[in-house]
């Protein structure tokens, strides 16, 4: 028994060491973001006697590019998620509660559209967007991201709706609820937590999307992914500023991510892992 307990402590310590190692680059970025530029590139790095400062954050925020990109990120991720929800909620509801023999095939077909690699259609999308004046517009990116995330969202909501116990809805029907009342007074309140976390997960996916945003935006509609790409050179040599901008770009979304990690497993494995 004693030996088992000792074992467990060692394994727990190992787990903490491994988890800290995984998160280390982020923790390090966080620390570096408060160092003056000279300290940030000092070798070997120091943790004591550093003149901690908010200077990097001030610089990033003052230069203006960040604010516009952050706004673009919020608008693009938010609007594309809302648009996808508007399409996906009715579809998932119908497939979960009025399934037909074709529902299964339809779901798998939707999934297969997600598997189309974006590079395969880069050229036509680029030309369509160029001719339609959608290059470097928020609307253009929103449209692509909404469509790209639609299958994932339909799947997430479908598996979620399926878990609402059917007898509760039947009870409502016997209690005299109309279809609308059944939806608004029973199903929606029951499904709301799931809808919220699905929204958050799709929002984070939209926030982090870095193929279309890099290829189809330049300045006007550039979200944070594209803004961060501008640090690739030679600005990236300013480690303090890079770190501050990175933290500003990821902190809110990582925090949101923590809240929807449950949905993440079910959502991104399409119900194949529960």
């Amino acid at each position: 028994m004693k030996r088992g307990a000792a074992h467990r402590i060692v394994l727990t310590a190992l787990a903490w060491a491994a988890a800290l190692a995984v998160a280390f680059p982020l923790l390090w970025t966080f620390i570096t973001s408060f160092k003056p530029e000279l300290e940030a590139v000092a070798f070997p790095p120091r943790l004591t006697g550093v003149d901690w400062t908010l200077e990097n954050y001030r610089t990033v925020l003052d230069e203006g590019g960040y604010a516009r990109s952050a706004l673009n990120s919020v608008v693009i991720a938010g609007a594309s998620t809302l648009a996808a929800m508007a399409l996906a909620i009715p579809a998932a509801w119908a497939m979960a509660f009025a399934p037909t023999p074709r529902t299964r095939g339809l779901l798998l077909w939707m999934l297969s559209t997600k598997m189309l690699p974006p590079v395969g259609v880069l050229m036509p999308i680029y030309l369509i967007y160029r001719d339609a004046g959608l290059l470097d517009t928020r609307a253009g990116v929103i449209l692509l991201l909404a469509l790209g995330n639609l299958p994932v969202l339909v799947w997430m909501l479908y598996t979620h709706f399926r878990e609402v116990p059917g007898e509760v809805l039947e009870a409502a029907r016997l209690d005299g609820a109309s279809v609308v009342q059944e939806l608004t007074q029973v199903l929606l309140p029951l499904a709301l937590p799931g809808l919220a976390s699905a929204f958050l997960l799709i929002f984070t996916l939209g926030w982090n999307e870095a193929f279309w945003t890099l290829n189809l935006t330049s300045t006007e509609a550039a979200p944070l992914t594209a803004f961060m790409a501008t640090f690739s050179s030679p600005q990236g040599l300013f480690f303090g500023r890079l770190s501050a901008a990175s933290i500003l770009s990821i902190l809110p979304i990582v925090a949101i991510g923590w809240f929807c990690q449950r949905q993440l497993v079910r959502g991104l494995t399409f119900g194949a892992v529960k």
């Binding site: 995984v22 998160a23 680059p25 982020l26 390090w28 970025t29 570096t32 984070t204 926030w207 982090n208 870095a210 890099l214 944070l224 992914t225 594209a226 961060m228 790409a229 640090f231 690739s232 990236g236 040599l237 480690f239 890079l242 770190s243 990175s246 770009s249 990821i250 979304i253 990582v254 949101i256 991510g257 923590w258 990690q261 993440l264």
Partner: peptide, 18 residues
């Protein structure tokens, strides 16, 4: 779980530089 929610451009730049 945190690294999963870091945007690819940030992940790449942090690793490359820091």
């Amino acid at each position: 779980i945190s690294p999963f929610f870091v945007m690819p451009t940030v992940a790449a730049l942090v690793w490359k530089n820091l």
